[in-house]
Simulated scan of single mutants.
Amino acid sequence: MSAPDPIEQALLVVIDPVARRVDGESVRIARDVLRGGAATKICLPDGPEEVERALARRGRRRPVVIGDDRALLHVVNVLQRRRELGDIPVSAVPVGPLPAVSLAQTLGVPLGPVAAARAVLDGTERRLDVLVDDGGGVVLGGLWVPGGYGPGGETDVPAGPAGPAGTAGPNGSAEAGEAGAEAVETMDAGSGPGCGAAEGMGGRGGEGHQPWWSPAARTARSALTLLTGPGPAAEGRVPVPGCTRLRIEADGVLVTDLDRPVTRVSLAAADGGLAELTVHTHDADRPQRSRARRITISGPAFRYRADNALTGPVRRRTWTAHAEGWRLVVPRG
């Protein structure tokens, strides 16, 4: 794998508004490091429409997302809709507490703002498999059905920063969030909402490297473990009572039908353009595992959690694995 071409060192830096409220200091640090190493255009969107317009007008700039997993997923889904996801490398600077940035961590992106920004400038591209559903949605890490696992056993609670957006900082205090917002307000005297041109070229920022995730952990099964929890007994997670009746097919072959209740279904992109499917049934001691390119789940309305975001209810959904379907910039080595 080679580093991005020099012409691609021009960056479109999309700073998520939640990140500006939650941890403005980290946002400012990351922005300064990026400005010090590449020509940058800073985008401070007020909503998803402005992100889409910025990506449509990015020219040859590489997109960089400063924010949590949801901000990264939004940019990835926009690029997928524009049929550009496999054509350009995407970079991320995670900002926010765990589990709001657990997907980025799983993918190998450093969690420290300096280390992550340096990876944007000096890193290398990884071509990663991806799952795309029949509605056009992208799954980068993994998903499971039903979507009712929470960190304390609660059901159907979307993962994200503690409390409503903008009310708590990384340490859980409202004061930290407000201080972060004030720090980011001072970024550019002439910058307001929207995407203004803020170009810069110069030296690199300071230290503060944080080790990034071990390559050995970046497998389909490990991704699901990190994003959803390895099981009922781990980290205080408790399964939702009862079972779900689903029909599951893998490349047209029936895996389980409505007459065999399932307690949990996991799905993640594996190597070679295949998806790894794990089905826990009520009447079996061990899960049933298989790999296929296309997985279809149908039955009574169900919810699922993909990359820690809750979706549904739906009655039928098909996911297709795409080999090397997207490109992510990560640290070298």
Rank of each mutant, 00 (worst) to 15 (best):
R118N: 13
G142K: 05
A179G: 07
L328W: 06
R332Y: 06
V14M: 15
H280V: 10
G153V: 09
C43Y: 03
A179Q: 14
V64T: 01
E276D: 00
G135A: 12
D5I: 00
P17A: 03
L140R: 08
R62V: 04
H209I: 14
P239R: 12
R118V: 11
S266E: 15
A71R: 03
A10I: 00
L11Q: 04
W326L: 10
D134F: 12
D5C: 06
A223Y: 14
A323L: 10
T296I: 04
P211Y: 04
G196I: 11
G299C: 07
V120Y: 04
W212H: 12
G202M: 06
A38P: 07
A217L: 12
R291I: 05
V109E: 04
A268T: 07
E276L: 13
R293H: 10
E125N: 07
D271N: 02
E84M: 13
V184T: 14
E84R: 11
G166Y: 10
G163I: 02
T296G: 00
L246R: 11
G160V: 02
G59K: 03
G108K: 04
A176H: 14
I88F: 01
S191A: 13
V314A: 08
T167N: 03
G252P: 08
Y304F: 13
G200P: 11
R316K: 10
R35G: 09
N171D: 15
E154D: 12
G24F: 06
A309H: 13
